[in-house]
């Protein structure tokens, strides 16, 4: 058995395309999921009984069903209701929805992690909830949100491989396509594993850097 680098070099174009699509899908889904997640978290915390229950049900449903099963549900069931979407669009929707459920829990946990006294001090100063949220709670929860969203981002990158099953032409799909033509699973799976590995490593290094630079007050030492 030998490792044939030529297979990789010959197929670099579809590999690069697939890799770019993987990055693209995640780059779009993560912020969409996060915006939805913030909304869901606020609904669950302050939305009153009806909206809070709805948000909780949405979050629990998505968190307790495997992503692959959700993807199949969307891909095969939506057409039954007359909604024919391309695999790529289904992939975007599935990944964003999935991200939103996890982001909602991250944001909710983050807001709950700030001591109640912070909100009370804001109220006592006459600030409204919107201002308290924007100026007091959110800046403080960055330290909580950043590391957990790194995990979410990495989770999404890895989960996006599942979209290959419904023929979204991302990295894993392209890899299987190449293997189908070249019968060289060892080389191709090795290279895509390395690509995923590199990408997730890059994301976690990047956010660690951000974590340090966005919160100077956490590293400021007491000088007396």
């Amino acid at each position: 058995m030998q490792f044939d680098v030529a297979v990789i070099l010959d197929n670099w174009q579809p590999l690069a395309d697939g890799f770019a699509r993987t990055i693209g899908i995640c780059t779009v889904s993560l912020p969409i999921g996060f915006i939805l997640g913030v909304a869901l978290a606020l609904l669950r915390l302050h939305g009153g009984l009806v909206f809070a229950t709805f948000a909780a049900a949405y979050v629990e449903l998505l968190r307790n069903i495997p992503f692959l099963t959700q993807v199949f549900l969307l891909y095969f069931v939506l057409p039954e209701f007359g909604l024919r979407l391309s695999p790529l669009v289904v992939g975007f929707i599935a990944l964003s929805a999935y991200a939103s459920a996890y982001a909602a829990e991250i944001v909710r946990g983050a807001i709950l992690s700030v001591p109640a006294g912070q909100t009370e001090a804001g109220y006592a100063l006459g600030l409204g909830y919107a201002t308290i949220l924007r100026r007091i709670l959110l800046p403080q929860v960055l330290g909580y949100i950043l590391p957990t969203s790194t995990n979410l981002a990495i989770g999404l990158i890895k989960e996006s491989a599942v979209l290959s099953v419904i023929t979204v032409p991302e990295l894993t799909y392209e890899a299987q396509d190449i293997i189908g033509r070249t019968f060289s699973p060892v080389e191709i799976f090795t290279i895509i594993a390395l690509l995923y590995w590199g990408l997730t490593a890059l994301v976690s290094t990047l956010t660690k850097w951000l974590e340090i630079h966005l919160q100077p007050y956490l590293t400021a030492r007491r000088t007396g």
Binding site: M1, I154, I157, K158, E159, S160, A161, V162, S164, T172, Q176, I179, P185, V186, F189, T190, I192, A193, Y196, W197, T200, A201
Partner: peptide
């Protein structure tokens, strides 16, 4: 490696690449 790569890829490696 395990944390940084998709489970699907890990499965495909074990099922398709390992025999090779």
């Amino acid at each position: 490696f395990i944390r940084g790569t998709p489970l699907l890829v890990q499965i495909l490696v074990i099922y398709y690449a390992l025999p090779g």
